[in-house]
Design a protein around this nucleic acid. Structure first.
Lengths: 201, 201
DNA sequence: AAAGTTATTGACCGCTCGGTCCACCATTCT
DNA sequence: AGAATGGTGGACCGAGCGGTCAATAACTTT
């Protein structure tokens, strides 16, 4: 009963997300967003509200899809669960060290810039971290069930610790630390996990 | 042979640092800095240059003093080296989780906001991380010498891994993760370090 | 005391900021 | 066809931005 939108919402939000991702919240202007999306100011404000709402929207989507993606990557049969987690973290290490990935992770960037002063961002960030933690813990529980982790190992605590390493990779990678060091962090963390007692073969 | 300055440079730089620390680089205006320092614009520009130089100056100082402080905290006799490092990281965990420490760490904030686009910041950040790593590694070498770490333990790799955990604490704390979880990360990381074989007593 | 030098202040600059508003347009309903 | 509805683009707003500058003040040297 009225004029339909001429833009693809998902595509616009992706462009907005990339701007915030590349430049940060404060350093991104509405003009930047207009240019990135090709939309006029009126459309942007009419469709999504102000800058802050726009950021929240894309931040939210990023968080949700991050957790989803990790869960999908880590879920699978018990067999190989530990190796799946290890490979995932090695991938994060490589990605974090890659010069083509200088912008790092939007969750990290948004949290660092805004969480202290913006409860909504902090809440979303915390929820996301907990989501990642849960995914890790589940994977470690599988690994224990499958015998790759000692029976007395505590997946909850180990999962939290690996979450710490995960976020550390992100932070250290942004400073330009080399890939070998980052991958070494993951390998070292995994080497020191409580292995299952060796069975005779 | 000229009019002397009426302000204390160290004090002014501390005020500037706190502003950047609390609000971030882009979100801090020169007016904020004028108000925080009590200086006029001309004095600020005359004494320190523009906003970017000012940031670099305080960022640099922060980095230097951070590494110094950690080295001082961790140095000591071989005896108790491992426990010193553990206590230090537990302190970081508690501090990172503290609601009175919402601003987190300036190194993390500055790196996250600027490193991708500002080589000077990235360089300084990387150097700082390496400094922390070295301090950790030395401490672990002491621990091994003293027998708290297995002889085959590799302090270099373990130090890097703990640096990852360290930066992870920072990042996770900023999202508001609870203190128990953060301290748990440290404890878990230390529990899984390769302990020295038990000797009969 | 006069000259020389530097610090200080705040008015001022052009520009960009986030946000509003409105004339105009494309579509659907009657 | 005409009215109603809501999307679109961009002119426009006041405020704030980073940065400059010139008048003035405070000190040292001669």
């Amino acid at each position: 009963m009225a004029r339909p939108r001429t833009f693809d919402e998902a595509q616009v939000l992706r462009a907005v997300r990339d701007q915030f991702w590349n430049k940060g919240y404060a350093a991104t202007s509405m003009d930047d967003l207009m240019q990135a999306t090709g939309l006029g100011k009126g459309s942007l404000y009419g469709a999504f509200g102000d800058k802050h709402q726009l950021f929240l929207k894309v931040f939210d989507a990023y968080c949700v899809s991050s957790v989803e993606s990790v869960k999908k990557t880590l879920e699978g049969p018990d067999a190989g669960a530990l190796e799946r987690l290890r490979q995932y973290l090695l991938g994060v290490a490589t990605a974090s060290a890659s010069p083509t990935n200088r912008r790092g992770c939007l969750l990290a960037r948004g949290t660092s810039e805004l969480a202290a002063q913006d409860g909504q961002v902090a809440d979303r960030a915390l929820e996301t971290l907990r989501g990642l933690e849960v995914a890790f813990v589940r994977c470690l529980e599988q690994a224990r069930a499958q015998g790759d982790l000692a029976p007395q190992a505590d997946p909850k605590r180990l999962g939290a610790m690996l979450l710490g390493v995960h976020r550390g990779l992100e932070a250290v990678g942004k400073a330009g630390m080399d890939e070998a060091t980052l991958r070494g962090m993951v390998e070292t963390a995994f080497e020191s996990l409580p292995a299952a007692p060796k069975r005779r073969r």
